[in-house]
Amino acid sequence: MISIKNLSKSYGNNQVLKNVSCDLSKGKVYGFVGENGAGKTTLFKCIADLETYDGEIKSEYQVLKNHIGFLQTNPIFMSLITGWEYLKLLSIARNIKNDDFEKRNIFNLPLDQYTENYSTGMMKKLAFMGILLQKNDIYILDEPFNGVDIHSNILILEIIAKLKSLNKTVLISSHIFSTLNDCCDEIRLIKNGQFHKTVQKENFSLLEEEMRKFVVGNKISALEIE
């Protein structure tokens, strides 16, 4: 379990997270939604210890980040590195010797090609495959469905279900509500750096409706489209 207490994060005068607290259990999938800049990615980076913060993040692990697989919104790749070599780097970093990546290449990626020649979706799938090979206990997936084709999205949803069955903790952010609807046990709405609302699976449709009302409001009529 990960326990977050009074987590705050500021960039200069801009406070992005304000005293956020929550508990994240094993075998559960948590969704995080909110507008751009609401603080989702910052929250993920704080949990992953990629950002300094005020407050407390506790877990059963001595070094929490060593058990986290972090799929970033825009995964980072080096130039002149092939897909296979990228996976090898991620495996070495977690002392994993097995490098029979072709066998586990479920996304059919061209592993012998340079990653810079990959499309956006292929890059995301490669990065996702990389953190899966690391055999992590916690998965942070920041916009995992963005830019990925519909077939792979179905596969990603199945992988998330499998991770849940293996008692892993999964944190996901997405702007596509339906994908969260399919895989999450709980969704938290982040607004102005705080958890505005926490909704369980049975009430997801209510949250979606509320978000739609809030986001759309009477903005469309303000456009005066004729």
């Binding site: 002149l80 296979w84 070599e85 990228y86 090898k88 780097l89 490098d99 012998d112 090609q113 340079y114």
Partner: peptide, 18 residues
């Protein structure tokens, strides 16, 4: 950036030398 992959003897040692 080109598609031609230049083989290296450092496959198992990513990434600086590759």
């Amino acid at each position: 950036s080109w598609n031609l992959k230049i083989p290296t003897p450092f496959k198992k040692f990513p990434f600086e030398f590759i």
